[in-house]
Each structure stands twice: as C-alpha cells, then as structure tokens.
Nucleic acid binder design. Structure first.
Lengths: 225, 225
DNA sequence: GCATATTTGTCCGTATGTATA
DNA sequence: CTATACATACGGACAAATATG
C-alpha cells in the first residue's frame, strides 16, 4: 500500500527549488539591484542552511542574475546600459539566426501565431502584465525555431537578465503594447516564407525595444540621482 | 600606502579554482564519459570538503560538463550524436552571426589572421596538438567579432562541451589539419569584406567538422560495443 | 524480496581570514 | 586601530534514497 500520499512529491533538490523562487523574486523586481544578500539572513528567511544557499548563489551568479564579490558577498545584479546593449546584441544574433530557420508548419511558428492572438485578447482586456508575459513567450518560441536546447537555454538566461532590468523600471503600463502588431506582422511574413522581410521586421522590433529599455533605464537612473 | 605586499595569490575562491581544474581534466579526457564522481572520493582527492565540492559540481553541471541525477550523484557528461548535432546547430547561429559583423581592422579579425599564421607554423613542425588548440582559439576569436561578453561566454561553454567530445575520441593526429587552409581563406574573405562568401566558407567548415566529429564518435562508440 | 551498507541531501557548529564601522 | 560582522571553508551528524549482497 502506498505510504507516499498525494502530498509533496518532493522530487527536485532543495537548491533547485530555491533557485527558482529567488529567480522569480528577482524577475518580479522584489529585490533591489545592487542590494546585498546576506547568507545568514537569506538562509533563515528561506529556512535553509547556508551551505545549501551557497549552491543556490553560485548557480544564480553563473546565470548573471546575482553578482559575487569574493570575501564581500553576493549582490543582486545591477544591469546598466552596457548590459542592455550587450543583451540586445546577443538577442540579434540568436533571434535572427532563429528567424532564418523558420519554415511553414514548424511547431514553434504555430505557437508564435497563437501567442499573437492571445496577446491581442489580453490587450482588449487591458491586461498589460499578461501582454508582457506573452511577449516574452513569443520570443522564446521564436528561438525554438532553431530546435536547439542549448540555444534555448542560453536565450532563457538572456531573457531572465532582461526581465531583471524590467524589474528596475517604473512599470509604466504600456511597455509592450506597440509590439503586438509587430509580432503579428512577423508571423505573417514567416508563414509566407518571406525570411528576409521577417528579419527586417525583427530588427525593427529589436531596435525599438532596445531604445525603449535604454531610455526607461536612464530615466530610472536619473530619478535615483 | 600599500600594505598589500606582493603576495596574495589566493584571490579567487577555492570552488572556482577546483572548477577550473576539473574542467581541464574533463577536456583533456582524463575522466571517462558517464563515469561516476563520488562526492567523498573526489573531495578527498582534491583535499576539499564535500560542501565546497557540491558548489563545484553545481557549476560544472550548469555548464553541461557534468550531469546530475538527484539522489544518484554526479557523472561525467557523455555527449552523444544528438549533443554534437545540437552543438553545431548552436555554432552555426553564433558564428554566422559573428562573421556577419566582421569589419576590416577589427581586433578579433586581426587576431584570427595571426592565429592562422601560427597554425601554419605548428603544422610545419608537426605539432598537431598545438594545431588543435590554435584552431579552437581561432573560432573563439571569430565570436569576439560580436563584441559581446555574453555571446563569448556562451560560446566558451559550447566549445568546452565539444572538447569534452574530443576527449572521448581516439586522438587520431590529423584531426584539425584540413581546416588550416579553410580558416586562412575565411580570413582573406573577411579582410576583403566579402561577408557572404565568408559565411559560405564558414558553413563549409562547420559541415565538414561536424561530419568528422560524428563519424569519429560513431567509430569510438562501436569500438566500445 | 529483504536486510544491510553506501551515498546523497541537508543541517549545524566552528575556526579562520577579510572587510568595514 | 580595534572591534564587529561576515564570508570562507571544514568536519561531523543524521535522515532518506539508493545500491548491494
């Protein structure tokens, strides 16, 4: 008879779970950039030991979400303009490479179409938070056109870092609205196998998005003096 | 006034140092793919505590060089054909993106030229190990054309994984020889700003290299039954 | 299939060195 | 300059999962 009742299929290691939780907190902007994360404090806050937490910190540091200074401790990463520029440089390389591989009927392309529709829905109901989430998923799906787990994982990292930047920004609601139509156009082009035009459209998107983020970042920086 | 005398070599944390050492061992093929790495055993072998070693394992696992199975332990990653195919998929996206950004006079392009010359030198003296090392550096330099720390870091990871595959192979000497000329041609094309032709040349290289690695991997697999 | 030994996962205590008020 | 706080690193402990005979 099963003694393993419905409860906590406590499968994945504790460290992994805490990694996810802290990453979510970082992405949601619940931790200020540059803020120090004391081992003792955070460990007791999560009810885990310092040893386990150190494993967590190492992972998040290697993913660029935390920054580790030897003998000083661990701090929330504070992406600056240079980081944003580099993130978009990486995005261009990966995503243009992805779009170049787009083919009609590819599952990822279908998914992109569905996500555009969902974004329009969310737009109608003024659910801007959801529009933002869907936009992220749209670009994730785009990279899945490569059919490469490694590229997916890397892009995931880059996106997480970008979302860390968003967390810093004053969440003015309409951050993602103008991009719904651009995404829609891109899908149409790719479904028509118009790759070059698709790349053009993507580059327009990335340039606009980058400028928006940089501008917002600067405004936020100025506010904080 | 500086009280920090000449000394102080012990800068980077212990875990980082051990990460480097184990990574070198993996790349040099000193550890068999799939081999189990016992915490206790490896910890005492390196003279470090289990706690510290676990941090090391987490990092190497997140870099794809080790594979971690919960409650079972940590094993040397055993890249298979699928891994190789994916690695080359990632390489195509990154490196084509890099070549597209090549411009005359870019430091990375200059470095590529120097490395080709060095490879020819090494070839003359039949130093195949060195030819291989230089070839790796050549492609690293290529990605530096992007001027993106994040892309560099990712490519570094991918290359490390590829070198792990090489470690599995029976090191037949001339593994890298045929590519010296191809690299040389590529540099010439890029210095003449012939980007499209450069990409073509790169794709030829990547396809040939991928096939060679896959064939060698299969031979090795067959040998082991 | 069972009993036992081994190993991982996780915690705690503690000594040492480094940074900072 | 001293004192305090903290990161670094180690060893021991124990439950739970896994491997072994």
């Amino acid at each position: 008879m099963s003694t393993k009742i419905a409860l906590g299929p406590d499968d994945q290691p504790l460290a992994e779970k805490v990694v996810s939780r802290i990453r979510d907190m970082l992405i949601d902007g619940e931790l200020a950039p540059g803020q120090k994360l004391s081992e003792q404090q955070v460990a007791s806050q999560f009810g885990i030991s310092r040893n386990t937490l150190r494993e967590v910190f190492r992972l998040l540091t290697s993913q660029g979400l935390l920054s580790h200074i030897p003998n000083r401790g661990v701090f929330v990463a504070a992406p600056n303009a240079a980081s944003v520029i580099d993130i978009y440089r990486a995005r261009r390389v990966i995503q243009i490479g992805a779009v170049r591989m787009a083919s009609r009927g590819h599952p990822a392309l279908l998914r992109m179409g569905i996500l555009v529709a969902e974004a329009k829905e969310a737009q109608k109901s003024n659910d801007w938070r959801r529009v933002g989430t869907i936009n992220m998923e749209f670009h994730r799906a785009m990279v899945e056109l490569c059919d490469s787990p490694r590229l997916n994982a890397f892009f995931e990292m880059v996106l997480a870092e970008l979302r860390l930047v968003f967390g810093q920004l004053d969440n003015s609601a309409h951050l993602h609205e103008p991009y719904i139509d651009m995404n829609s156009i891109l899908v149409s082009l790719l479904e028509a196998e118009k790759i070059s035009e698709g790349i053009e459209q993507l580059e327009i998107y990335l340039l606009r998005s980058e400028r928006m983020v940089l501008a917002a970042l600067q405004r936020t920086a100025e506010q904080k003096g």
